[in-house]
């Protein structure tokens, strides 16, 4: 309440505010896992996809050029920062992760290790 002049904080100094968890869709097919995360207002430059050991974290700062003399009439969201962390399991190929950000939606593709892909075992009759 202290400062109602800001709809969405953009100053890096305030990035220590608690981050918001973005909504995600996660699904798995034979080749790997796909993750979609809603991060409106995050540009490619302010997005950080990090892999630390088995921990995959996505973090983005909301950046909008707000007029300096604007005051809030009402605000449903206050989301200066998105952050969410996932633990990958061993059969996923962390080095093959692909990330793509479009219109505020982050799409991550985590492929499975080649040896972890499902494989059909031929049964031979003798």
């Amino acid at each position: 309440m202290a400062d109602r002049n800001e709809l969405t904080t953009t100053k890096p100094a305030e990035s220590n505010q608690r981050p918001v968890s973005p909504a995600v869709d996660i699904f798995e097919d034979a080749g790997g896992i796909t993750l979609l995360a809603d991060m409106p207002g995050v540009s490619k430059e302010r997005l950080d996809v990090k892999l630390d050991g088995d921990n995959l974290s996505i973090e983005g700062h909301v950046e909008m050029d707000l007029p300096a003399d604007m005051r809030a009439l009402w605000a449903e969201v206050n989301m200066p920062r998105f952050r969410r962390t996932f633990t990958l399991s061993r059969e996923l190929d962390a080095s093959g992760i692909e990330a793509n950000l479009k219109d505020g939606v982050l799409m991550l593709r985590v492929p499975k290790q080649a040896h972890a892909q499902p494989r059909r075992i031929e049964v031979t009759a003798s």
Partner: peptide
């Protein structure tokens, strides 16, 4: 979110 400046009303819809 809706904000107001001396010359306009600004509406932000978070629709990714």
């Amino acid at each position: 979110n809706v904000g107001r400046t001396p010359t306009s009303v600004e509406v932000f819809a978070f629709a990714p």
